[in-house]
Design a protein around this nucleic acid. Structure first.
Length: 498
RNA sequence: GCCGCCUUAGCUCAGUUGGUUAGAGCGCCAGAUUGUGGCUCUGGAGGUCCUCCGUUCGAUCCGGAGAGGCGGUACCA
């Protein structure tokens, strides 16, 4: 502390501004509880399918994440990176799949194969944040490494569906769409598109189908598209015949899985790769049926492509269907609440050996937001503890004894530790959404009693009360019992709270 | 990254044609009510008017640059 007084303005200028970093969010008890419920439910589901838990560190060496980092101050965009003591670039993981590939490569010899694991945790992306789009969020992944069978893909899909159910998402609220990269690849090859860059541009164009519609995608497949802001996006430069066959392909969805498959067979142009993709989807479909996954939950949709380049075959995406609006009444699109696919080349980056792998990533943070928006986050506000009113400085020991007694009985309880009158303490308990307050004043102590107030009952009755004096004198939901019956009395009241 | 709009109290927003004490509603704190949540009434606290530079006797207001937010677009291994 400086002894001479700085001017108030100078002092203020030195103070840091209290603010959350861009794209990061503070999350409070209610949201955390909802998230924990979801993660636990999903983890239990994955374990019931025989997947084991795995945790890896938040940082990975940047080369393990597949980033090429030049000797510049700033490594590639998209990740948060820093240089370790030994000059090695380390980066916060941007998903849970790349760390898995690293782990599998490192421990391949000793792992039971196929290796099936689930993992949950935070991932970080250094990207432009937006509504429902953060730079730090939680994912829950399940992957099977070492099995190329389509049944492994089907199992992952069935598990994802079971996970959403366990998380409390109603089945009509979302759809899981399945496609195979091999179909479009084969179609493009048959149409004479050889360049990888062009194929990638086609994938990007198809990815925008939900936003731009068939017309927009048509432009992006050909010359390019001029958007409302005046910016021009160069297209994939396909010729008319190729554009038409891609559009026919992405429009071949809808209907049951079998129907979609037979429709796709007519539009993929008869390439070997396309046929292989079709055969895989057919086996996935058969397996899904035996897993009991309904046609309305998981369907084949040729318009699903997924952005990640490393997918080599089947790709999946879970999309929230429910229409939701924000506080201002504007429509909110949550986009995908999970996705995944087969990535047979990822482990090979480390080992040089092609290792089949498939997995699904569950967007936990998105799902919490989605459940809240669909009004299914039953009370995102967390319930508070039983509050023991601190009446008298000299009696603090009694209050702590009451709280300890309640805790020993398995109830959450706390003694009010601020400096405030009883009115403010009641208001505190009200705001914490506490189910009950324990009042132990001079009168109660003298009489060997304790007063317990049912705050939920008061909350219900408060709406109809117009006179404060009457409200106070009625003391709704308040009971005074012998001190020895404290726990039973509180329990009777708390038991009624949700 | 690029384009457009925006930034005044904790929140939602007025306002100042450049001038001395910048406002409202809600929220917050206290009292009315020596020991009781809501309503009502009374009082109170809370602002570098996003930041820096420039123009000016004087800038929250005008000009420039930057930051942050929102929307669109691109990218997303």
């Amino acid at each position: 502390m400086a002894s001479d007084k700085a001017t108030p303005a100078a002092e203020a200028a030195e103070r840091p501004r209290a603010r959350t970093p861009r794209g990061f969010a503070d999350r409070r008890a209610g949201e955390l509880a909802a998230e924990r419920r979801i993660v636990e439910a999903v983890a239990r589901t994955y374990e019931s399918y025989g997947f084991e838990a795995l945790e890896t560190g938040a940082f990975e060496y940047a080369d393990a994440l597949g980033k090429f980092l030049p000797d510049a101050d700033r490594p590639n965009e998209g990740v948060f990176a820093l240089r370790d003591d030994d000059e090695e670039w380390m980066a916060l993981r941007y998903d849970l799949t790349a760390p898995l590939a690293r782990f599998v490569a490192q421990n391949w010899e000793t792992l039971p194969k196929p290796f099936r694991r689930y993992a949950f945790g935070k991932v970080w992306r250094n990207e432009k944040p937006g509504p429902g789009r953060y730079r730090e969020f939680v994912q829950c992944d399940a992957d099977t490494v070492g099995s190329g069978r389509p049944e492994a893909d089907a199992e992952i899909i069935a598990m994802a569906v079971a996970g959403y159910a366990a998380a409390g998402l109603p089945r009509e609220a979302y759809q899981l769409k399945i496609n195979n990269r091999k179909l479009l690849n084969g179609l493009l090859t048959a149409a004479g598109v050889a360049s990888e860059g062009q194929k990638l541009a086609v994938l990007r164009a198809v990815d925008k189908l939900d936003r731009l519609g068939l017309q927009g995608v048509k432009l992006l497949l050909g010359e390019g598209r001029l958007d409302e802001s005046g910016a021009f996006t160069r297209g994939a430069q396909l010729d008319h015949a190729a554009v038409d066959s891609v559009l026919a392909f992405v429009s071949a969805g809808a209907g049951g899985r079998e129907a979609t498959l037979s429709r796709l067979a007519n539009v993929i142009g008869g390439s070997a790769e396309g046929e292989a993709g079709l055969a895989e989807l057919s086996r996935i479909g058969a397996a899904l049926a035996s897993f009991g996954v309904g046609e309305d939950q998981a369907l084949f949709d040729p318009s699903v492509v997924r952005g990640l380049e490393y997918y080599t075959g089947p790709v999946f995406e879970a999309e929230l269907l429910a229409e939701t609006v924000d506080e201002a009444g504007a429509a909110v699109r949550f986009g995908s609440i999970g996705g995944g696919g087969r990535y047979d080349d990822l482990v090979a980056r480390f080992t040089g050996e092609r290792t089949p792998a498939t997995g699904f990533s569950f967007g936990v943070s998105r799902l919490v937001a989605a459940l809240a928006a669909t009004g299914r986050a039953d009370g995102l506000a967390a319930r508070g503890p039983v509050v023991v009113i601190a009446f008298d400085e000299a009696r603090m020991a009694d209050y702590f004894a009451v709280a300890a007694e309640l805790r020993a009985a398995g109830l959450s309880a706390e003694v009010f530790l601020g400096q405030a009158g009883m009115r403010a303490q009641m208001r505190y308990a009200d705001r914490r959404l506490s189910p009950a307050a324990v009042i132990l004043g001079e009168d109660e102590i003298a009489a060997g009693q304790v007063t317990v107030k049912d705050l939920d009952l008061g909350r219900e009755l408060a709406a109809g009360v117009t006179d404060n004096k009457a409200w106070r004198e009625e003391r709704p939901g308040q009971v005074t019992a012998p001190r020895a019956e404290l726990v039973a009395t509180v329990r009777a009241i708390v038991g009624r709270a949700r």
